[in-house]
């Protein structure tokens, strides 16, 4: 299944689930940020050499590293 890490720059996807492997504090933070079931995320750009991803979630832009982005399950719109 596709993760947020697999999205291309400019692509909007919908979050499905967060991997169970994530730390409790991290997954609740991600949910509060808006990475929650059924909500949209816009991938703004990918960094070179597997650098951090830049995503727009609700009213904020965040950068996320691979370690966490690859644990966020998404599906294309």
């Amino acid at each position: 299944m596709m993760s947020l890490w697999d999205t291309a720059g400019g692509q909007t996807v919908t979050v499905t689930t967060l991997d169970a492997g994530l730390d409790q504090a991290v997954s609740s933070r991600l949910r509060e940020m808006g990475l929650d079931n059924g909500l949209p995320v816009l991938c703004l750009r990918r960094g070179p050499f597997n650098g951090a991803l830049v995503v727009a979630i609700a009213d904020c832009v965040y950068s996320l590293e691979q370690k966490v982005a690859s644990k966020i399950r998404v599906k294309p719109l």
């Binding site: 504090a25 991290v26 951090a52 830049v54 832009v61 965040y62 950068s63 370690k67």
Partner: peptide, 8 residues
């Protein structure tokens, strides 16, 4: 270790 999450 917590992951890198930074608001721009």
């Amino acid at each position: 270790d917590m992951p890198f999450i930074l608001e721009l």
